[in-house]
Structures are given as structure tokens and as C-alpha cells.
Design a protein around this nucleic acid. Sequence first.
DNA 1: GCATTAACCACAG
DNA 2: CTGTGGTTAATGC
Length: 226
Amino acid sequence: MEYASCSTCLLKSKAVKSLGENELHILGQGCVQTVFKKGETIIKQGALSSNIIYLQTGLVKLMIDGSHRTQILRMKKAPCYLGLPTTMGDKINHYSAVALKKTTACFVDINVFKELLKISPEFSYEIIVELCKNELEQFNRYVRLVQNQIYGRLATNLLYFSNEIYLSDEFKLPLNRTELADLVCTSRETISRQLTELAEEKIIDIDGKHLRIVNKSLLEEISKKG
DNA sequence: GCATTAACCACAG
DNA sequence: CTGTGGTTAATGC
């Protein structure tokens, strides 16, 4: 096994950038980079959690297998940390993370991570900022999920893909219809119907997974109204 | 009542 | 895996 050389790594997080040579050396002792193919599981719900993961490149879905169905908690796009809540919060992972395309991840031993939190305030600060931003996003997503109708929720998520993940009005959906349903909290059939409806209204162009947003302002309107 | 929303089932490409 | 049609239940005028 090769130890990572963190000081020369070009894909450092903002938190890691604040570390000195000495601390980077500590990190390097407990840090391994791994590549995941599309569909591979990076974190498994129910398994023992012993690593903090930094997503360097790629795209991931976080999901929980509930008693009745699967729920996609959110998408996560690199660069970002993965599994902070599930690794620090309990011995066992509460959710799974699955790569939606080729993804590079850096696994950091939990004890090394804790050590860095202790010795570097700047590092800790950046971690807290990321955690807080995530919590706010999740709170807002939760409210939308409960208070908006499906049409609006779907619109919101399509806009999220466009604005936050692909930075383009045209992209290939990373999820199939069932997964979209798990993300939006509805049934596969409803997703199908509403996508064709959005296409009929000339708000989007859809061909399989290829999606182009034609009328963005209207889509934003639908997203806002719920 | 009547309309709307959305889930579940079935079936066909 | 996806789209569509029929049916049904809940909810709101």
C-alpha cells in the first residue's frame, strides 16, 4: 500500500489547504486515494464506519434504504466531504453513498481526522462551515419536499442538476426514472408522466436521459410555486 | 357532489 | 427500463 503524498496533491479541500507540512504528513499516514466506477458503493449503510471520505472528482448519491422504499437523500458533487455525519455520528453508517460516474475519493482514517481537528483550528473551522452549509441545504430540501407538490419538486431538482451539478441547461440525467422518484419522493410513473408533461409544455426537451431546459424562467416559476 | 392530485397495478414496447 | 391507461383514495372547494 502506498501512502498518499498530501503536500503535492492538487485536489486538496479548503480545510486541508490550511494545514502545514507537519500536519500534511500526519494526514498522509492515514489517507488513501481510491477510484470508483459508476454504480460502485463507496459507503454502505449498516457497515462499520471508520473513514472520512473526501470526494476529489465525480458525482455521488446518498441514500437510505427505508423499511418501505429507498430514499435518495441528496446528490453530492466533488469536491466535498462525504460521510462526516455518518462517521462521526455513530459507529455504523446510517446511509450509503454510490458513485454515479467515475469518482475519485480519498479515504481518511477517522483517528487521523480527529487528530487534525484537535491540532488545527483552521482545519476544524472549514469542516464546521461545510457541515453547517450542508445542514441548511438539507433543512430547505426537507421543507420543499413536504410543502410542495410533485410538479414543483421535480422542477426544483431539475434546476438543481442544471445550476449546481452540470452548470449547463443541457445535460444527461445521472439517474433513471425510479431513482428520480426516490429523490423527489414520488412514484416512477408520476415522474414519467410529469417529464412528458414538461416536454409538452415546451419547458424541457427530453430524450431518454438527455435533457435540455428550454424555458428556464417558467421552470423556475414552477419550482417556486411548488 | 365534483375536481384535482397522486399512488398502485397492469401491460406493452 | 420506460410510458401509458385504468382505477382508486384522499383532499379541497
